[in-house]
Design a binder for these strands. Structure first.
Lengths: 199, 199
DNA sequence: CGGTTCATGTAACTAGTTACATGATTTT
DNA sequence: AAAATCATGTAACTAGTTACATGAACCG
């Protein structure tokens, strides 16, 4: 149940309408908790029904009219509770690693273009994060809020750095593999009871 | 749609029953595509209906009787197709980073114990991966299959390394923050229109 | 023979995704 | 005034999670 809390955080930082939230999710919060506008509108409805947020009274609510929300005290309390509560990390899922493992079994040169594409995407994301760091976190400012937000951004930067490095390494491995003959994974020299191991 | 392909990969490596698959997901494939036994049984049913796998004829199918599956040619073809097909990375979601950002807004010392707990979990996972590397990938063996599987394992190791380092860094930040007075995020000295920035 | 574990499954629910609908505003 | 785009929303679907059910085997 993280989406409502992501929205509460965003609204505390700045009261917004559904569309503004959607845009902010695209370029800020969404970097580590993405959401589509459909999810956001649905969740705004629930948060309002629960008394965690309310529409700012200034704008009248009509279809096609923008409606801004602010967080109520109950919403802030709920967010603080959730932030401090212990949570297990959710099970990890990564399709690209899975595909690579599948490639080891059915033969793998086909992924190479997609590895290249992913490398490019991660490089762009890394560049974006670094630009944000340069712009929003100059050496001077040093409030606790700044420190925490910077910490989060550092996680993003380090993660993207990891992926670009790993993907580069994977691609060089692939060019080496290209040299080796008989790489289609079909004729298993070990037979069906080969070294399955654990990983 | 990755789960069926994760199962096909596992079954190609070694034909298994539902429970065996569940166990293997717990300690191998599940490291990067986790699944519960309920998901696995449901998916085995679908894969069989689609003609991608079949139950080994040896064991009779009765409730409480173990039933092993093997991959049919159609299943292998589907897996090869999926492996080579281009796929967009799925939107990233990380509750811990979100909570840290929330902590910057509502006040944050409450997360610290959970950061410690996560650090411990990641350290254990890292140790497990390193043990697997030592056991399954000694310097000698060097088939393309080995290379690919090792590459996947390296991703796991490097990811866990990143998390342990980042969490350690985050925790030292927190002890520094403890020194600073008035860290509850409630009294925003910038007012509601402070430096929202982009991140 | 009564309780625990093994093995397979069902049912209900929750979160996220995809496709589409509709009124308001702005542009040509 | 027609077309495009803005802003909010609905509906249907898919994947993943949680809770529970049931027969078989095994253990004291």
């Amino acid at each position: 149940m993280s989406l409502p809390h992501a929205i509460l955080t965003a609204l505390l930082e700045k009261p917004s309408s559904g569309l503004e939230l959607t845009r902010r999710f695209d370029r800020s919060i969404g970097y580590f908790w993405s959401a589509t506008h459909q999810q956001i509108y649905r969740e705004l409805g629930r948060l309002e029904a629960d008394g965690h947020i309310r529409a700012l009274p200034t704008a009248q609510p009509a279809r096609g009219q923008r409606k801004s929300y602010e967080v109520l005290e109950a919403g802030r309390a709920e967010l603080a509770r959730w932030t401090a509560a212990s949570q297990d990390p959710k099970p990890y899922r990564d399709a690209l690693l899975l595909r690579l493992r599948a490639a080891a079994v059915v033969g793998g040169t086909g992924i190479e273009p997609d590895l290249r594409r992913h490398l490019d995407l991660h490089q762009r994301q890394l560049a974006e994060y670094e630009a944000i760091e340069k712009r929003d976190f100059p050496p001077g400012r040093d409030t606790p809020q700044d420190r925490l937000q910077h910490l989060v951004l550092r996680a993003g930067i380090d993660l993207e750095t990891f992926w670009t490095q790993w993907l580069s390494h994977a691609l060089t491995e692939f060019t080496h593999l290209g040299d080796l003959a008989d790489f289609d994974g079909h004729d298993d020299p070990d037979g069906p009871d080969g070294p399955d191991g654990t990983m």
